[in-house]
Design a protein around this nucleic acid. Structure first.
Lengths: 225, 225
DNA sequence: TTCCTTGTTATACGACAGTATAACTGTAAG
DNA sequence: CTTACAGTTATACTGTCGTATAACAAGGAA
């Protein structure tokens, strides 16, 4: 009986492979299901590599949290960047991107929630969360500010921040409940609901945001995995 | 060496004690920390009782989820009931109750999130979540409807439902981020932000809701445990 | 008091957890 | 082609996991 043959990968590739395997196990079987052996098997290696690359299984799991958050904010930023120059259009597209596929993903919601549950008591998690939330708020503020200016509305930092907090909550909430896919309403409604509510929160004239987005009127589109 | 002496409790009391111990362990040490032995020790019994009362540890954990959700919706309903008869006041109080202590609790947010992470793949969890979300939406709709009527605004079921979805998202998001206590802003701001945003979402005149709530202008009040 | 029911403890068991260590082997440098 | 390093496997070890089972005792019924 000979040993398993293997390939040597670059540190980055191997780490990423293990992190993705970790996320897979957590999404599919919960925190309990992400055992060292199971994650290693999913990544096609043996459990010893976890120690080699991350020092411990717990360190790997928190690294997976950071990795997931990086993906999420990356996607969100990307979608706001490719929306052109019109401030209202940028904001509208950003909001919609967060309540439609691929961001509206039950897998991502499940992962996010699982990790959020540990933010309260574990400092590493809490640091990662705080930083990502700060980033998201800042991004929203920079999207909101020019919209207010264009309408000659007060746009001082405090006002912008309060708007950003409320808008972030709206987006988080819709993303969360929409992503969970409870089937209580058609998730194709989410863009319209989100934009209409955002216009209300920012006290913008009707259609200020809505006009920039083609709202899907067709039938249900289930959330992606 | 003699046996530990014990008392026989009623089925309800013993079950509740075990469920609360389960929630404690999950909140403090995550899903992994809620082992049968640890939960039993916290409840002051031995692990065998879990099998006796719930059949298995997994069944106990999902029962704990249902127990938690019952507490949450119970508190929310209670706070809306003791708000008098004025529709605007009832809605305002309900919203504020969800972003202030004791509902704004980092422990509850952490527990909620931990369970939500399992909604996607485990049917029992998904059922419990769907039902509680449906209840919350329905409650919001019954609060929103009379407010719209009083202002002679269209109040058909579809409109109410869309408003309820958006408002629920706003409340969920503020509760979540506020409860996590990241320290990025003063959580005493949340009632004002929530009411202002709610007025915007529902397109109500300024202060329609705000006038019914004394907004705390004093210094930071950290979220309760 | 005495007996019976059953809630509760105590213990054993196999499975699997995380990880430390040693042996092996892929790969690039010399 | 050889050598040496380090990425990777294999394995062993101790602890804890969930739970099945049997002994025990609390407290009401007779």
């Amino acid at each position: 009986m000979s040993r398993k043959s293997f390939q040597r990968w670059s540190m980055d590739a191997r780490r990423r492979s293990l992190l993705e395997a970790t996320l897979h196990c957590i999404a599919e079987h919960g925190m309990n299901g992400a055992s060292a052996r199971r994650v290693a098997e999913r990544a096609g290696v043996t459990a010893g590599l976890i120690r080699h690359y991350f020092g411990s299984k717990d360190a790997m799991v928190s690294a997976a949290y950071a990795y997931l958050i990086g993906q999420l904010t990356g996607e969100a930023e990307e979608s706001s960047e490719q929306a052109g120059e019109v401030p209202e259009r940028r904001l509208a597209r950003f909001i919609v991107a967060n309540v439609t596929s691929p961001n509206l993903s039950s897998r991502k919601v499940a992962l996010w929630a699982t990790f959020i549950g540990r933010v309260r008591t574990e400092p590493e998690y809490s640091d990662i969360h705080r930083e990502s939330y700060r980033e998201f708020l800042a991004l929203l503020e920079t999207l909101i500010h020019p919209v207010l200016l264009a309408l000659e509305r007060p746009a001082d930092p405090v006002t912008c921040k309060h708007y950003a907090i409320a808008l972030n909550a709206l987006i988080d909430g819709l993303w969360l409940e929409g992503g969970l896919g409870h089937g209580l309403y058609d998730t194709a409604l989410l863009p319209k609901i989100a934009l209409s509510a955002a216009e209300g929160i920012l006290a913008l004239p009707n259609n200020t945001l809505m006009q920039y987005v083609a709202v899907d009127k067709s039938s249900s589109q289930p959330a992606t995995q």
